[in-house]
Design a protein around this nucleic acid. Structure first.
Length: 195
DNA sequence: GTCGAGATTATCT
DNA sequence: GATAATCTCGACC
């Protein structure tokens, strides 16, 4: 598996669609992911170079990169590219296929099954992924990744909610499996107001 | 049903 | 002190 994850994010991302992420008794089949290149990608956390937060992304592939954002949300990524090169894939959404009862318990605001892991932060909550799971080995750690037997069909579009204007968001690096109810609706812009 | 603003804190400047 | 790879809730149609 590590050989497959050693390539650049845009090549690895299609392989993750249909993959299963398992944490304890809860398993999620990924239906939506987003590729982030390293220091050359303005939307990436690695754009400004190595820091405490993104150190894991510079590490070896096949590990879990988590980050905290908007003061209350945790998101999970899969690190790819060899050690020393920052690159990762954000797990945006998925379908809970095991442990739905437990996932529902964690996601008390969810009303329909499709909402359980519809969005990066929701997916992390449903799986019980926390900030301190960063750096976990996806083959032997608490968080496991199982690649699918065959590649799923997918569509591509612009990434959502990334920082930067115009051009930085023009790459079609958001991939999803068409027709899946758990795929989050596209949000073209994020209105940001500061008080 | 859709749309828009507020929440809340680790990390970086 | 400002920012952020988001979610939720309340207002309105």
């Amino acid at each position: 598996m590590l050989e497959l994850l050693r390539r650049q994010a845009t090549e690895v991302a299609p392989l993750l669609l249909g993959a299963v992420v398992r944490v304890g008794d809860v398993a999620v089949r990924l239906t939506e992911v987003e590729a982030y290149m390293g220091e050359g990608d303005p939307g990436s956390h690695a754009f400004r170079g190595l820091g405490k937060r993104n150190a894991v992304m510079y590490g070896p592939p096949g590990h879990l990169y988590t980050y905290f954002t908007y003061g209350m949300h945790t998101c999970a990524n899969v690190v790819c590219m060899p050690e020393g090169v920052a690159s990762g894939i954000l797990l945006r959404a998925g379908e809970v296929i095991e442990g739905a009862d437990l996932a529902r318990e964690r996601r008390t605001t969810s009303r329909k099954p499709a909402d359980l892991a519809q969005g990066p932060a929701r997916l992390a909550v449903a799986l019980g992924i926390r900030l301190d799971d960063a750096g976990d080995n996806l083959e032997s750690g608490r968080v496991r990744l199982e690649l699918p037997q065959s590649r799923a069909p997918f569509s591509a579009g612009p990434r959502t909610g990334v920082a930067g204007e115009g051009g930085s968001n023009s790459y079609p690096w958001r991939l999803w499996i068409p027709g899946e109810p758990s795929v989050s609706p596209y949000r073209p812009a994020v209105k940001r107001k500061r008080s």
